[in-house]
Design a protein around this nucleic acid. Structure first.
Lengths: 106, 106
DNA sequence: AAAATATTCAGCATGTACGCTGAATATTGA
DNA sequence: TCAATATTCAGCGTACATGCTGAATATTTT
């Protein structure tokens, strides 16, 4: 296991996989620039996909912890979980740890 | 197009897709902690996959710009392109831009 | 030149992702 | 209750990803 603890392996997997699809990255940006929360239908309206396709993307994002949701009447409001993106930052931070200088390329 | 310029759309696609696979994330970390460069065979030795499988992962990482490579005798040396990871940081930085306050959730 | 080493290419099987459509569920309004 | 609205669930087809194996290529060594 490369990760120092192993605790986040599954989380990394979920988050990085979720971010791999352009529509899902765009969902996150869309919600963010809308103030952090949006109804499923509003989000779906941004895309040319069938709305059921967007539903699945939303579920994947929620399963990855990047969104949370709550029913509000007959709508479902999705809320961006910005903190979850820190997982990506954490992973990137590995590349700031100084590696073994003995092997450093000049 | 959500991105302010659109120039990086394909790059985002390549980089985020490349990072979606745990073996490829691990390749990057492995090379990094080895000093930034490793022969294909050395990298493949880290994994339990057939080495041909690792070859393909290396090609995907190189196509995404996360690795570069050069022949050295009968070996191929892969070099980590750390700067390319800035693309991910750039994308994450979108979530630090203050969104329209009128729509801000309290 | 032949053998050994290091890596890549090509093709195959299987599983998953992602688009679609149609049906189902939940809530609201008449 | 019935119709309208908002969303989800289920199933299908296609395409792609990812593992494998075997053959091919390039380089070095004998």
């Amino acid at each position: 296991m490369v990760d120092e603890s192993g605790r986040h392996e599954d989380a990394y997997e979920a988050v990085f996989s979720a971010l791999a699809h352009p529509a899902r990255r765009r969902v996150l940006l869309t919600i963010y620039f809308n103030g952090g929360s949006m109804a499923a239908g509003e989000i779906a309206a941004v895309f040319s996909h069938a709305w059921q396709t967007t539903t699945r993307h939303l579920q994947i994002l929620e399963a990855a912890g990047l969104l949370s949701s709550a029913r509000d009447g007959r709508m479902r409001i999705y809320h961006l979980e910005r903190k979850r993106l820190d997982l990506v930052r954490d992973w990137l931070a590995h590349f700031s740890i100084t590696p073994d200088p003995a092997k450093e390329t000049p």
